[in-house]
Design a protein around this nucleic acid. Structure first.
Lengths: 195, 195, 195, 195
DNA sequence: TGATAAACGAGACGGTACGTCTAGTCTTACT
DNA sequence: AGTAAGACTAGACGTACCGTCTCGTTTATCA
C-alpha cells in the first residue's frame, strides 16, 4: 500500500533546490546560456557545486528544469473553430519561448540536448510533449466538427508550428510580432482543412 | 580603379584556408560542434592557431563558412504548380540540413550566432538569404498564375519551412523522412493559396 | 572516591572503535597515508563519519593511535655494555618504523603533526616518550658502570637515533639494513663514552 | 659544436618562472606547505595554472626547487680536524633546514616525496647529494690525517647527521639550539675516529 | 514504564583544491 | 607581413575530500 521505503540519511534541502533554480534563471537572463556555468549558479545560490551535481547531471538538465517546468497550463482552447484554437495554442508557444529566461536559454539548450545522444532522444518528450497533448485534443474536436481528416499528422504540424515559432522568436526576432500566432494559425489551419 | 590598396608583405597562403576548412568539416563530423575547438582544427590542418584567427573571428564564423558555402545552387524549380515548386525547394533544404557536417553543426552554430549580438543580426541574411531569393521567384510565378496573393508574407513562410525542417531533421529525427518535403509543401501551399 | 559522573545516553560501541582502527591500518597499507581519508576509513569500517570524529579530532590523531599504540614493550635491554644495550634499543626502533602500516604512515603523519601547533608540541611526548624512558634507564646503568658521564644529553642522542632510523627506514630505504642498529649503536656508544 | 637544436615556438618567459618561485616561497612562509596550493601560487604570481604545470609536475617538485636550489655553497670546511669540519658542515645543514621557507616546507615535502615511488627514489640524490659530496671531501682529508678509517660509511653518517638535524630543527624545536652543530659533531667525530 | 539523551549509519551540506581543457593573444624564428 | 610552434592569462570543467549538519533509529540511564 505504501510506497517510499525509507530514505536513508539526511534529506535534501528543498531550499537548496529552489535557490539553485532561481540563481540559474537570474544568470540566464543576465549573462546568457553560454556564460551560465554550474560554478556560477552554485556560487549565486550560496551552495556547493556538489549540491548542484547531486540533483542534475549537468547544465542542460538544470536549465531545462529551471526554464520549462512552470507548467502553468492554461486550459486547452475550445473556441469552436480550428483556426482560433490553433491561434490560442500558438500564442501560448510564443509566450513560452519569448519569456526572458527561455529566450536566453533555448538555442543553447537545444544545441546541448542535440549534442548528447541520451538527451537528444528526450527532446520530443521533454520539450514538445505538453504541446502535443493539447494539439491532439484540438485536432480531435476539429475532426468531430469535420474540419480536418482523422489522420492529420500531428507530429508534422507540431514540428512546423514549434519550428516556426523558434525561428521567429528564438533566433531572428526580438519583438514577438503580435500577429504571428494568428497569421501562422490561419495558414496552417487552411492548409490542413478538408477541401 | 582597383581597390585593394597595397598588399604588403607575404600574401596569405590559400592552401592554409582550404586545409582549415577541410579540417573543420572532418572534426564536425567526427566529434561534433562542441568538441570542434579552434586549436583542434588548427592542429589537424597543420596550421598555427593565429592563421585561423587571422581569417575568421571565431568558431561560429569558421564553421558557417565551412558548412554553408557550398552554394551548389540547383536551378530554381519551375514545375508549373506552387505545391511542386515548394516541394523541390523544401527537398533542397532537407538535403542541406541533413548533410553530415551541417547536421552536426547546425544546432550549436545557431546557438552561438544567437548568443552574439553581431552574429544574431546576420542569421537572417547568412542562413536564409539564398533560400529567400529562390522562394521569392517561386512566389512571383505563383502570383502570376493567380495561385497566391501578391502580398503573401515571404518571411513568415520561410521561417515556417526552415523551422519545420530544422526541428524535424536537426533536432529530432535522424532519418530525414523521405516524404517530409512533399507533405509539408502540400500543407503550406494549400494554406496560402487563394480560396 | 567515585569518578565517572554519569554517562547519560547510549554508550559508545567499543566495536566501532576497533573497526575504525583496523580499517585505518588496512587503508594505510593498501593506499598510503595521503589517500587514507576519514571518509574511506569510515566506509570500510561500516561506520558513519561522525562516529570517527566523535573519537578523534582528525586523521593525524586517528592514525597515530592506530599505528603507534601497540606498546608491546619488550623489556628494557640490560646486556652489560652500553653498545649492546643501544643496539637492542635501536633494533626496536627499526622494527617499529619498518612495520608496514608505520612505514606508510610515518612521513605524512610527522608532516601533519608539524603543521599543527597543538600537535607539534606533542611530537616529543607522543612519539619519543616511550623510547626516552627506556634510553634513560640504559644511560643510568651506563653511568653506574662508568661508561658515560652523568650529564650525557639524552634528548640529543635520542633525536640522533630516531632521526637516523627515520631517514634510513622511512625515507630512503626499503630494506631495513640488518646491520643498521648495530653499526649505528657502535658509533654513538663510542661517541659518548668517556675517554 | 653547439647542441641545442632549435627551440620552436615562443620561449618560456623566465619572469614567470621567477614569479612562481617567489610566490611559492612567500606562501610557504605565510600559510605553510599544506595550504600552499598550485592555484594560490599561480594567482599570487599573476600567472595561469598551466604555466605552473608546464614547468613542474606538481607541488612537491615546485616547492623543492623553490626552497632547495639556492646552492649558495659555502666552501668545503678545512679546519684541520674532523670535529671542527663536521661542526661547520652541520651548521650549514642547520641553517639550511632552519630557513623560514625550508622549515615550513620540509616535513610535508619529505612526506610527499616518500608517497610517490618516482620521487622517493630521488630523495637521496635531490636532498642529500650536495651534502654527501662535501662530507666525502671532509672524510678524505680525515683519512689522510689518520683520524678515521678509509671505509667509514658515509651514507650512514650522513643519514644520522641529517636525521638528527631534521628531528631537532624541523619537527621538534623552534629554536635552532646554538650549540647543536658543535655537540653533535663532537659525538659523531669521536664515534667514528680510530681508537 | 516511559521520558530523556547520547550514539549510530547514512548522506546532504558549503567550501576548497585538484589537474585538464579551451579561448584568444602574444612572442619567438623562419619564410 | 605571413607562418608554425607554442607560451601566455583567465577561467570552466567534473571529482574528491574536508568537517559539520540533519535525518530516522537504536540503546542506554533516569524518573
Amino acid at each position: 500500500m505504501s510506497s517510499v521505503p525509507s530514505p536513508k540519511g539526511r534529506p535534501r534541502d528543498p531550499r537548496s533546490h529552489e535557490a539553485i533554480v532561481s540563481a540559474a534563471i537570474e544568470l540566464l537572463i543576465e549573462v546568457g546560456y553560454a556564460a551560465t556555468s554550474i560554478g556560477a549558479v552554485a556560487a549565486r545560490a550560496g551552495v556547493g557545486k556538489d549540491t548542484v551535481y547531486r540533483r542534475w547531471r549537468g547544465k542542460p538538465e538544470l536549465v531545462f528544469e529551471a526554464v520549462f517546468t512552470t507548467t502553468d497550463q492554461a486550459p486547452i482552447p475550445d473556441t469552436g473553430t480550428l483556426a482560433e484554437d490553433l491561434t490560442a495554442l500558438l500564442q501560448g508557444l510564443v509566450d513560452e519561448f519569448h519569456a526572458p529566461a527561455a529566450a536566453a536559454a533555448l538555442p543553447g539548450l537545444l544545441a546541448d540536448f542535440t549534442a548528447d545522444p541520451v538527451l537528444k532522444s528526450r527532446i520530443r518528450s521533454d520539450f514538445l510533449a505538453p504541446s502535443k497533448e493539447r494539439l491532439l485534443v484540438v485536432f480531435q474536436r476539429a475532426v468531430a466538427r469535420g474540419e480536418i481528416a482523422a489522420d492529420t499528422p500531428v507530429d508534422l504540424v507540431l514540428d512546423t508550428l514549434a519550428g516556426a515559432v523558434f525561428f521567429h522568436v528564438g533566433l531572428v526576432g526580438q519583438d514577438p510580432d503580435r500577429e504571428l500566432a494568428g497569421r501562422l494559425a490561419a495558414v496552417i489551419a487552411k492548409g490542413i482543412e478538408i477541401r
